[in-house]
């Protein structure tokens, strides 16, 4: 039997909202340590990796590892029947379940739904646990804003790191521009900008993926950008007390 209860069901809804435009069908893996998900977007340049640890749930039980194939679109249809303040419980009974049960619980209403599961044959990628040469922490809303602004000018966005901070730049047909974000150690953790740069990097990415990744900014006030030269970047949103959502994007080749 598998059972996982989110005290804050709104959080689960935010996670689904964050990934719904990146991935269509996903395998949700559950085991004794928690729930995880790994899926590539259809063009195979971006990867979504979610980890939710069992300690973050109000109630968690998973006697045997199981894989649940879900359509994100259908999952969303079910979640639309829940309130943002509901507690949400996911449950399966069988060892090889064909449905995933949902219980939405508020002060005055309990709703039950079953979502049909699918058998998905998905490639799993071995993502190495790497040390990145530049790690930047910055407000997630600021990163969202920069991507939106620079994305108007060109479809590719450059990222350059140095000991002084991080620079985003674009060069398009209409002209070019750059935004430098300065390091600060303000007392407000959500406004902090930190750069750990062992080796500077200069990389280019398709901004439209960043704009999709930024839907996850509702999960955390800070975003962590981890980069090494000529390697995929990782954009990480820490989900407080539960785990994290990591989004990987392959760099563009110099054109």
């Amino acid at each position: 039997m598998f059972e996982a209860k989110f005290e804050d069901g709104g959080l689960f809804k935010k996670i689904v909202e964050a990934i719904k435009e990146l991935v269509k069908n996903v395998n949700l893996e559950a085991n004794g340590t928690g729930i995880s998900l790994q899926a590539m977007d259809t063009s195979h340049v971006a990867l979504v990796a979610l980890q939710l640890n069992e300690k973050g749930f109000k109630k968690y039980r998973c006697e045997k590892s199981l894989t649940m194939g879900l359509s994100i679109e259908n999952l969303q249809k079910i979640l639309k029947c829940s309130g943002n303040d509901d507690q949400i419980t996911l449950r399966t009974q069988d060892e090889e379940p064909t449905t995933l049960s949902f219980t939405f619980e508020s002060k005055n209403r309990i709703s039950e739904f079953q979502l049909n599961l699918m058998s998905l044959d998905q490639e799993q990628l071995g993502v190495p646990d790497t040390e990145y040469s530049s790690v930047v922490r910055m407000p997630s809303n600021e990163f969202t804003k920069i991507c939106r602004e620079l994305g108007n000018i060109n479809e590719a966005i450059g990222i350059e790191t140095s000991k002084e901070g991080i620079k985003f730049y674009v060069k398009g047909d209409i002209g070019e521009g750059q935004v430098s974000v300065k390091i600060n150690d303000t007392e407000k953790p959500e406004e902090r900008v930190e750069c750990e740069v062992d080796e500077p990097v200069n990389l280019s990415f398709a901004v439209r993926y960043f704009n999709l990744f930024n839907k996850a900014s509702a999960l955390s006030s800070q975003v962590i950008l981890s980069m090494s030269q000529d390697q995929p970047l990782v954009i990480e949103y820490i989900i407080e007390e539960m785990g994290s959502l990591k989004l990987y994007l392959a760099p563009k080749i110099n054109d």
Partner: peptide
């Protein structure tokens, strides 16, 4: 994406 590299190039399929 003509000049975007696939992630499979970096991460092996397991």
């Amino acid at each position: 994406e003509e000049y975007q590299i696939y992630l499979n190039k970096y991460f092996p399929i397991v």
